[in-house]
Amino acid sequence: MSRRILNVVINGERHELLIEPHWTLLQVLRGQIGMMGTKENCLEAECGVCTVLLEGKAVNSCILLAGQVEGRAITTIEGLGDPEHLHPLQAAFIEHGAVQCGYCIPGMILSAKSFLDENPGRQPTRQEIREALAGTLCRCTGYGKIVDAVAAAAQRMAGKEPTP
């Protein structure tokens, strides 16, 4: 199959990649670049573990053709924060016991970020948080502590509670 060049910005870094036209963004992230923080499971946009941000909005990278992100900006979990500088969502997920096996967590955190960024400065209700996260399956936690974490991060991001 004929390959083509893809130009894409991932976590602020420009990449020029040789891809096949049928490859998904997930395949490129994991297979070409070796960024494994974006997880792989159903490949049918049913489970949400592959969620990344495309220009700040949550998308399922498993059904997005890589060619569709030409010239655009992608954020993955690796771009959100690092161990020394955790994003408030990452810190809140740890503090509230929202992480168990952790496989859905990158997708869950990025879905939450997309949602909170759409509603800046406003404290969402638990029901709104649940609706925002309903596209990502978690089999470990029962979601309650994830909702706690997102609610706490929302407060912190709105400046109502200082980042420790």
Binding site: R30, M35, M36, G37, T38, K39, E40, T76, I77, E78, L80, G81, D82, P83, L86, Q90, A91, F93, I94, E95, G97, V99, G102, Y103, I105, P106, I109
Partner: peptide, 18 residues
């Protein structure tokens, strides 16, 4: 907090599928 938490929220924890 769990010992493997930071690796899991930053995408650095390596799973079998990775």
């Amino acid at each position: 907090p769990r010992m493997d938490g930071i690796g899991k929220v930053t995408g650095k924890h390596v799973y079998a599928a990775d």
